[in-house]
Design a binder for these strands. Sequence first.
DNA 1: AATCCGTGGGC
DNA 2: TGCCCAAGGAT
Length: 377
Amino acid sequence: MAPQAKPRKSAATSSGDIAAPLLEWYDANHRELPWRISPRQLAAGIRPDPYRVWLSEIMLQQTTVEAVKSYFRAFLEKWPDVKSLAAAETDDVMKAWAGLGYYSRARNLKACANLVAAGKGAFPDTEAGLRELPGIGAYTAAAIAAIAFDRPAAVMDGNVERVMSRLFEISTPLPDAKPEIRTILETLVPPARPGDFAQAMMDLGATICTPRRPRCMLCPLRDGCQALANGDPELYPVKAPKTEKPARRGAAFIAIRPDGAILLRKRPERGLLGGMSEVPTTAWNARIDGDTTIAGAPFAAAWQRAGSISHVFTHFSLDLDVYRAEVTDRTLPAGSFWAPVATLHGEALPTVMKKAIEAAIPDATKKPFPHTAKRPS
DNA sequence: AATCCGTGGGC
DNA sequence: TGCCCAAGGAT
């Protein structure tokens, strides 16, 4: 057992003061997650499946653990290895990703699987090799290298930035502080169990060293935390001021065929909601003045106001007035298609589009309830 | 280098 | 309610 470090208020905390108590805490507080293998397996020398580590890390980019769990299980069920994912249709991958956000991740995921399967059939086992693959940046390359391949990589995500900024009282605002934090972090990565060290730092940030009201009394690193010794850890990390979020607005049109099918179209591959499906809309900077929005409809019809929805994206908020019309079958605008209501829940519909559709047709995009299907008696 | 890119939950 | 935040990457 490593001796506990004595409280220190100014001296830099050394590597031994961090890794040993952190790993001890990690072992005693192991979190069961769908993409993790058990500590017993790991101790026995069994390595995690690089495919699962990669898939989980892509999904976890800017996304909470709880949101990822069901998607990870569904993907693993559909595509249990990189070869099967490479053989999949991109549209099916987009559909499975719908609702998780940052849709370029799904496209890059598919592109990455194709590259790996077309190459050696296995992921590169170095940080540099991983870094070259689409969708894998500095963080993800380090995380996969450490967790799947036992490489002593410096894994730095938002959790680690927060933990480090408090431990060392980093006063430089993020993101400018990243190089400074990385330099210190590199000195802390232990030669043994670098993957567990990385996950322990992230677990600590997620459960103890939280953004607000950190549970310092439970922290295995409290004796070496400069922010705790000298003041208020919650004051860290210092962050650069954020730019304001503009408001946009427009109108969405829900065209309903007699059989209940809804008119959809596919968005351009790149940009906002790239490659996903949508209902026809006006441009999202349109002024809404009475009936003028009808001019943006995909075709003339008896459009009736069905309500409005709001949605907040990363860099703007959106208000959409929703119109609906019962329409007879017709020649479709290019790129459009009819989606049967029974399969709407499986379409590649981003959340904002599900909101718009449901404003006109309640529960239209909801998955059918299990009790409506056959069940054992 | 600065901007673009989703979503859901916590408070 | 509005703001903050999350296992970031691409351009």
